[in-house]
Structure formats: C-alpha cells, structure tokens
C-alpha cells in the first residue's frame, strides 16, 4: 500500500531523483569543518521556529514588551525553554556562520567558480548580524535600550549622511516606540525574508558546483 503510494508520488514529483541529487550527491573527502554550513542552516530554521513561537506572547510596544517577556519567562509553560533556545541560538548562529566563513576562506573555496557563493555568503553573514542587532532591542530592558542607543549612534557617525542613517534606524531622533516597532518588523519580516532568499541561492549554487575539495599540498 505505502509502496504504491510512494511510487505514485515518485512518478509525479521525482522524489528519488530529488533525493539523489540533493542529499546523496557525491562529496570529495573533506572534513568536519564542512558541516558548518548545514549547522548554520539548522540554526536558521531553529531560530525561525522558536521566533514564531515567541511572537505568540511577545508584544513590540514600549508599554508591554518588557512585561510580555517577563510573562514568557515566568507565566507560560516552557516559555523559558523557547526563549532560552532563541536567545542562545542567536549567539551560536552568529558564531557558527562566522566559523563557516573562516573555513571557506582557509580552504580557499571562494575561488572560481564559487565567487558568487562567497559574495552571497557575505550577505548572509551581514544579515545574521542584523538579526542579532535588531533582536537585541526587543526585550526593551536597560541593556538592550542602551546597546541600541550606542549602536545607532555609531551608525550615525558616517560622514555626511550619518544623521539621516541615525534617524532612519530610529524612526526619528530618539529611541522610541517607533524604533522598537521598526526593529521588530525588520527582525521578524524583512531580514528573515532576505536571509531565506539568500540561503536559497547559496544552496542552489552549492548543489550546482558541488563541494570544493580540501586543498592538498600541491594546490
């Protein structure tokens, strides 16, 4: 029965081909360091899922952001677990993405034909940092408030357009309800959308070109 169902689906979707080409692709003999890209992908999905669950209770308003997080931590069953995973996952994701990048650099995997994969990777790294920056403000506590004050102030030191950048980030001259709301929007919609799109292209290129081999002495 299941076999028939599987054959039926396989004939329309080409599941076997997909499995062969996506998951069973030939790999050169490499190293554990080559698993860090997959680890980054896993962390992205994990942050996405736990983040979606956090939005069930989190409120991006200066009046309630802090209280709603307090409620997540103490009022809801397993709120501490969901937030804990998201909180530590964020730091871990920045770390893992960065080490992944170092490995690609160390093995010189950014060379022809993988220059685009590398450039898109830089975009992915910046977007991941952007997630950390915007997410850090959301609990609306002392630490996050002053960290964002300083962070946006630094962005404001850019010559000529610095003042404009500062106001665009904050939604005005000061940190306010507008800042919290636009950081929230960036954190849950804009940057994740960019990340998802870039990850898609990144993976497409990786499957197209295959994994680069670990360089030998002669290389």
């Amino acid at each position: 029965m299941w076999k028939n169902l599987y054959t039926w689906l396989d004939e329309r979707f080409g599941l076997d081909d997909m499995y062969k080409n996506l998951l069973d692709r030939p790999e050169p003999k490499t190293s554990w360091w080559n698993t860090l890209g997959s680890a980054s992908l896993f962390l992205f999905v994990l942050q996405g899922l736990t983040g979606i669950f956090l939005t069930v209770y989190y409120t991006p308003s200066p009046d309630h952001a802090y209280d709603s997080i307090q409620y997540i931590m103490e009022g809801v069953a397993f709120g501490w677990l969901i937030r804990g995973i998201h909180h530590w996952g964020a730091t871990l994701m920045v770390l893992v993405v960065f080490i992944h990048m170092l490995r690609v650099f160390y093995t010189a995997s950014f060379k022809y034909p993988r220059e685009l994969t590398w450039l898109i990777g830089i975009g992915l790294f910046l977007a991941t940092l952007g997630m950390g920056f915007t997410g850090y403000l959301l609990p609306w506590n002392q630490k996050s408030f002053w960290a964002t004050t300083v962070g946006t102030q630094i962005a404001g030191t850019v010559p000529l357009i610095g003042d404009f950048i500062l106001k665009a980030l904050r939604g005005g001259p000061d940190l306010s309800a507008l800042t919290l709301q636009r950081f929230f929007s960036a954190h849950i919609w804009m940057i994740p959308a960019v990340l998802a799109a870039l990850i898609g292209i990144h993976l497409f290129l990786i499957i197209k070109h295959g994994e680069s081999h670990w360089p030998k002495k002669e290389d």
Partner: peptide, 13 residues
C-alpha cells in the same frame, strides 16, 4: 523534546 513542550506552551492559557 522541543516539540511537545512547544505545544504545551501554545495551549497553556
């Protein structure tokens, strides 16, 4: 381990 607590988290109220 993560999924079951998540369901509980959702329906807790």
């Amino acid at each position: 381990i993560v999924g079951l607590p998540s369901v509980y988290y959702l329906i807790d109220p």
